[in-house]
Amino acid sequence: MGVTTQTIENVLIIQVTGRIDHITANVFEQELLPHLKDCTGEEKKAVLDLSRVTYMSSAGLRVLLLAAKQCRKQQGELVVAALQPFLQEVFRISRFHVVFTIFDTVKAALDAISPAAAAVYDGS
């Protein structure tokens, strides 16, 4: 499990890699939540790129809910992008589309939340 970030204009793209289960979820929480502390208003938005997450159990879903609640509290915008088919299934069962705005790709997420970031995003 790994978390890397990239800032483009006013958007922090957080890319998560690997398998998030009841063993790795603690590290996921510790690595993810601090990145979101500046996520507020128009100044800083966040895209969670899950294209490289192959597996996520309820322990990972719990961390995502904590992240969403933290951003809401700060009036920040956090969206999710690029779910693999298995994660789409897990999200559907958990009805996470009720709590997250989900995009097919990072580019689509940027188009929606920050045209300025989308204009310079090179897809890497």
Binding site: L65, A68, K69, R72, S94, R95, V98, V99
Partner: peptide, 8 residues
């Protein structure tokens, strides 16, 4: 699962 984020 039907509640908003605040109540979830």
């Amino acid at each position: 699962l039907t509640t908003s984020l605040d109540d979830r």
